[in-house]
Design a protein around this nucleic acid. Sequence first.
DNA 1: ATTTTCAAAAATGTATACAAAAATAGTCTT
DNA 2: AAGACTATTTTTGTATACATTTTTGAAAAT
Lengths: 206, 206
Amino acid sequence: MDISEKIKDDILNSRLPKGQPLRQKDLSVRYSVSRIPVRDALLSLKAEGWLVPNGKAGVMIPDLNWQEAEDLSFMRAELECQLLKLAFDHITQRDIAAARDFLEALNEKNLTLIHRGELNWCFHDSLYRAADRPTLHREVERLNRQAVRYLGFQYGPLAYRQTSQHQHEALLGFVESRNKHAALVLLRQHIEEAGALLANYLKEIE
Amino acid sequence: MDISEKIKDDILNSRLPKGQPLRQKDLSVRYSVSRIPVRDALLSLKAEGWLVPNGKAGVMIPDLNWQEAEDLSFMRAELECQLLKLAFDHITQRDIAAARDFLEALNEKNLTLIHRGELNWCFHDSLYRAADRPTLHREVERLNRQAVRYLGFQYGPLAYRQTSQHQHEALLGFVESRNKHAALVLLRQHIEEAGALLANYLKEIE
DNA sequence: ATTTTCAAAAATGTATACAAAAATAGTCTT
DNA sequence: AAGACTATTTTTGTATACATTTTTGAAAAT
């Protein structure tokens, strides 16, 4: 686990302070490395949206907010449905088998948020891979990785895990039976529903 | 001009070798700095899509290709139209004035590609800003900045500058006369047409 | 001739030290 | 007491030096 992953993990589990700049020195002590790898990690995390600039110097952990949740799910809905549509007729048995494996793995109760997020993306990715559209694919992956920051709410207070898993199974079913239309409708619903639920929840607690 | 900008400029003007790894040492000599700021720049540029990993070590300047051009313009069309739609009813006179200024500036013949790309984004940004949707906005900005890598073709062999400028003027006209529908149709056309032209050209010379 | 192995070289990753910039706190002025 | 200014401290940015990893190329084996 490299430093960047450790920082993500610590952000997800609220082990790093929000609302104040993260100090390179503090982090270098915390993870027992020099400031150089810390700087590298902060740069990457900033580019991925896990951190935001803090004035003229330093970075901060941004607050989660309903607007970002809404925008992320909106963009995912638009782009991922397109990606699935492009992929659909080229999805192989191997892809389906891979998707099933990831789905299986997601049933495990004791997964870290990061691990669960990764498996979640891998499941979707198995279905998109056949689209063979690297740039679109890369962008969708970016969005999914940003959305991981919100997973804590979806699997915690919102208890959305069961529903999500059922939708995944249904989606895979439609792919296997080559029902493109139903798969696309369900995927959009899967993304938009989770986004709306999350956005509403965040609005409430704000 | 910081190093990262210099590297972008040198990539756009083919002053750095494509198809082989960029060496941190070479770059540090070239720009007369140590390897640390070079590393920072490479990390950022990799995150922005200007560079791609080269095996286990180093980065490379990726080839421009028609599929990426197509995907970028596809995503821009989907997301920017949505952004303009959200912004439209809130665009102020001040926004319009700003847009006009950038449009004016774009008439200047002797602009560097980077500068032209920046002005181009600023023009669009003036019209989107009123949407007040930071995350969506940020993602659209990312896509536009990636698209800058392709500007050399659009303003060079394709001689698309005139057409593009006319479309910009017409778009601003529709905004001023509060003709939302026409503006949205034109924006989509503006993005998709440029994308298709570029993709076709790249296919030909490939 | 092709492939494999392994040592040398080169490149990247990291630590430490120093320079520049930013934030802080205290003093002075009004 | 509020605000502006300056000195001090803190933090970030960069250079240099060292460690680790990767690449390269020559020699040996098939």
